[in-house]
Design a protein around this nucleic acid. Structure first.
Lengths: 338, 338
DNA sequence: CTGAAAGCGCTTACAG
DNA sequence: CTGAAAGCGCTTACAG
């Protein structure tokens, strides 16, 4: 239990009868005579030597640390992205510093700077994000992942959220819905903006007479649950709901159950994300699938490339989405209504 | 966008006209004349100085880094614990290094050693854990959180899982169930052992004639889903299921739906954990609640105390659980069966 | 190929 | 209270 002190490269050198710099070369692939290398490797193995990363970071130009900003780990959506980023970083021998909303933007910025991270993968940026902008202004490379910001000085990767909105509009219109409500995500999030814009545009195009009610769900379960219950209890409830993400759609499904509203008989519900629980038999949520792992993976790779070549032009990748039809949507006609 | 080089304490010192060690003292609360301190603080603020943590770690006895080992971030259960640990560490100015199953045990051990973490919070230990033991043997303080190991040389915190098993047995027996199956968690996990043991003991005590079938769900959705479908399709299906955690209970609920088995009419299902989704109207899972955040918080605090006082006696805390009755369990009599 | 040396940015005794 | 100096454990030119 007593803390076993770590061996340093100096001790390894002494034991192998070489200079410390030779040990360093063996470790980092410098040119070393085969026989010297063998001897050093032996001593290294004997002690199961692990270089002190703090020392290495201090002297090297880079720390090998990448910040990953996730606002809300509790949305099952984000752990999937963390894992994908982690996998890429791990492959490249980089380390991950997780920043959640436990710290304020100011504290997080301070932490990223104190840690001297090489770059940041930012998953939950807002339009005037209080963390993303300052980080970037400090010259730390940032890649925006999943949520983007127009004009942001960094690489960006996102799903085709506008098309997502359009697909949902088409689906609900095709089913005959004419009283539709949209449960919106956080206002300054690009995903909510784009999904909303795509949906509205398609509606205006195909069915300008449809009255669209919009409520704010803030990408939050409890907020959406309350908003949808209110919506359904009103005199003229909508026959269909487009929720900007699955968490809010799950809330809507449960709110409907609480209000005794049958889905999809009296209400159709569509989400966006395709979270794991959406495929459950008890849920069967019609939703739009986005390639979550892929988005995160691409973001991580873009960051790595950026670190290699800071001057290359910015990229902005938009990955395709797909409507997943399940059991929460059904045709609607005035007669269907009870 | 160009990387803005960080200022060092030497530059601060020069600009403030003091020695670098004085800057260090101002930063760390050493004794400094009020007027000197003021001058240094001004320069510090002007540059928004952030000390290089790598440098600090290198020279100080401790790094301020705490490893948090989470096998599967995808179980909604774990992010809740991460957050609780994060909150405590953040309060204390410590940093968190997340270790998931992206790396092997060997790689994770190497990483913890290279990073020179001060200690580790271990959430998913197995009986002969390939990571927990070696880490501890390297003299790094480990606190076992949620899952424990008998005889492990570290502080431990867990829920009262034996009582959890007993509570469930009582509940199902009270409802009249006599054909019961248990969907078990990973074999070498203390939670599965204790929940299983408590359940079996109570059954043996109150209703030795009950035949208990046990299947392995491995704390995994897909595994449990398949196992439960098979169970329900058999000639003599059980009338009640005790799943060692909620993820597996959710799988069971969905498997039942897939098999056209009515819950709770034809099958009662009980979980363990009380995950957020269990309270959903669409799920309404009867389960055992354990104080998840609290367990994680206590673990983090025990680790902090351990770092303060490495020689104090080991503690082992067991926190109470509570049965949460919802809609997936119902009375059973031979006549009820279809 | 290899060693001696400088230096990364801090903290911490040690003098004064 | 404050400064000069040593040293943490590495990487990286620089000589040889």
């Amino acid at each position: 239990m007593a803390r076993r002190p770590s061996v340093s490269s100096v001790q390894i050198a002494r034991e192998a009868g070489v200079a410390q710099s030779t040990v360093s070369r063996v470790l980092n692939g410098g040119s070393v005579a085969p026989q010297t290398r063998r001897r050093v490797l032996e001593v290294l193995a004997k002690h199961d030597f692990q270089p002190n990363l703090a020392a290495r970071s201090l002297v090297a130009a880079r720390t090998g640390l990448v910040g990953v900003v996730i606002r809300d780990l509790t949305n099952p959506f984000y752990p999937i992205m963390v894992r994908a980023v982690e996998r890429v970083l791990h492959e490249e021998g980089l380390r991950l510093l997780l920043l959640s909303d436990v710290a304020t933007a100011q504290e997080s910025l301070a932490m990223l700077r104190r840690e001297r991270v090489d770059g940041v993968v930012f998953t939950s940026a807002l339009r005037e994000d209080p963390l993303a902008w300052p980080v970037s202004e400090h010259g730390i490379p940032v890649v925006l992942c999943h949520r983007t910001i127009e004009g942001f000085p960094g690489d960006q990767v996102e799903a085709d959220n506008t098309t997502a909105g359009r697909l949902v509009a088409d689906h609900l219109l095709d089913l005959g819905h004419r009283r539709i409500a949209m449960v919106c995500g956080t206002e300054r999030a690009s995903t909510a903006e784009q999904r909303g814009a795509g949906f509205r545009a398609r509606l205006a195009e195909r069915a300008p007479q449809v009255d669209l009610v919009e409520v704010q769900g803030d990408y939050d379960y409890a907020t959406s649950y309350a908003a949808v219950r209110e919506l359904l209890a009103a005199p003229q409830p909508p026959s269909a709901l487009f929720c900007h993400n699955d968490v809010m759609a799950h809330a809507a499904l449960n709110a409907a159950a609480a209000e005794g509203v049958d889905v999809p008989g009296q209400l159709s519900v569509v989400g966006c994300d395709d979270a794991p629980a959406s495929a459950w038999e008890r849920i069967e949520l019609t939703t739009v699938r986005q390639p979550l792992s892929r988005i995160a993976e691409v973001a991580a790779r873009l960051l790595l490339e950026r670190l290699q070549d800071p001057e290359s032009p910015l990229s902005h990748e938009v990955l395709p989405v797909e409507l997943v039809l399940r059991a929460t949507t059904a045709p609607w006609s005035a007669d269907t209504a009870s």
